[in-house]
Amino acid sequence: MRNNATTEPAWLRWALITLALGFLALNLLLPLLAVFGEALRKGITAYVAGIREPDAIAALRLTLTVAAIAVPLNIIIGLAASWAIAKFDFRWKSVLITLIDLPFSVSPVVAGLIYVLLFGLQGWFGPWLRAHDVQVIFAVPGLVLATVFVTFPFVARELIPLMEEQGRDEEEAALSLGASGLSTFWHVTLPNVRWGLMYGVLLCNARAMGEFGAVSVVSGHIRGKTNTLPLHIEILYNEYNFVAAFAVASILAGLALVTLVAKSLLEWRFAGQLAGRGH
């Protein structure tokens, strides 16, 4: 009985599905449940106390602040870069694409150290910054810079294949009908890529809030001042404050889940438009 080359025997299909689901349950679902389990181990009162602690609130505020600066910055720069790459021809284009990929290939710790080398007291701009009373690393600007660096590729990488696939025909039509460059971008290019952009923004945001390595290097770990949520979790854990550590971790997991749900909604609702993403 050979009916279809794509149909495998039932047992094999079930084995594969069980394997995949089992793997997901073990590696994704179980740790997630463990986070919430540990957080609630000593009851809801201890959980709430862990979250309402001033340092935890400061860390949450800082994480949201950093994401609120880093994500819009990356939207603007990502849009500009992908627009330039997909719609124009120029020399060094491949160099630019490689540069955009750089943060993916560089370890986050190295990304953090780059900023210490540039803006640290012993670094290139350190003495000048000190003389002018500007604090970059071990303060919010450093955290933002490090986050922008590691999250930079998400928007651009999402948009470049999409824009390239859509080609330049529509833009050329708009231009030939007398539209200005800016209004062509605003009324033609941007609406075409809006769902891809959203998708990139969500990924960018998730990483911005969860980043550990790069921000750890430039943070200085000042309690209530320069600790983002992931750094604060590490500190609480090291202080044997396991309930509070997991309570704060559950907040971070919650933020990530919101992002994931939003992403799934986008995928489900706009599967057609997103299909053109090219990867």
């Binding site: 210490v116 803006f119 012993q122 670094g123 770990h221 309690r223 209530g224 001042k225």
Partner: peptide, 20 residues
Amino acid sequence: INQSHGGSGKQARSVIDGLQ
């Protein structure tokens, strides 16, 4: 009084690099 904690050598390095 704000606090920063870590391995002693690493903390010294941060102060050298400009942690105030």
